[in-house]
Design a protein around this nucleic acid. Structure first.
Lengths: 109, 109
DNA sequence: AATCGCTATATTTATGAAAACATAACGCTA
DNA sequence: TAGCGTTATGTTTTCATAAATATAGCGATT
């Protein structure tokens, strides 16, 4: 028996950040490219682009900054705010898992 | 911005109980019938039956007891173990939500 | 023994989300 | 100015899951 959980944050009832988006953000941070991140995650470029676009639209300030054309075709950078978001989310998730596992022990007895 | 969560319990890597199954169990408890519960939840009888069947198979002891034929065609009762499961799950879920909301306050500041 | 509402299960059909495919624009570089 | 890899976006196709449909069996009740 294992306790499992998922957490996410909504804005105006729409999904803002969750596991998939955070992982995508981390990959973009690593590669500075939406297409490279999508490839690495075996996700279509379109899907990745849409997720990031929605995040940007829902966020109080941009999570990524995208550049079209130019050196190496362009690229995408995660903003400081985006980096903070990753850190905060992962921290909260870890805390949640720890809490649940502790509680679940006493449930089983 | 709202923090959201889902918890569930797995057995051997397979979903054992989660929101949908708990709600179904509660409805079966109320109606003593899989078909009545399914109707109330706008779920197909087959889906409901399958969910309960899988729960029973994964559980250490039966969650529901089903009777075919007889008075009013038969029926299904939630066992004491099943009732306990509902209570425990809902309690754990409430605790999780409380915990997350508290943590999320300090995140935002 | 006929009826009734339920459990049990197989088969077919819909539906919605993801993937796949296609194409255009952009701007540095060579 | 031709080419490259990227962002940007529309359209089509697949696929997995849920819903719908169909049918059989059960057993107390009448």
């Amino acid at each position: 028996m294992e306790i499992k959980s998922r957490i996410w944050i909504e804005e105006k009832g729409k999904p803002f950040i969750g596991f998939g988006r955070i992982n995508l953000l981390k990959e973009v941070e690593k590669t500075s490219s939406i297409s490279a991140a999508a490839r690495a995650m075996h996700m279509s470029y379109k899907k990745a682009w849409q997720l990031l676009d929605q995040m940007n639209k829902l966020a109080p300030e941009p999570v990524v900054i995208k550049n079209v054309g130019g050196k190496s075709g362009g690229g995408t950078q995660v903003t400081d705010y985006g980096v903070l978001l990753i850190q905060k989310f992962e921290e909260l998730n870890t805390q949640c898992i720890t809490f649940l596992e502790e509680e679940f022990k006493s449930w089983q007895s």
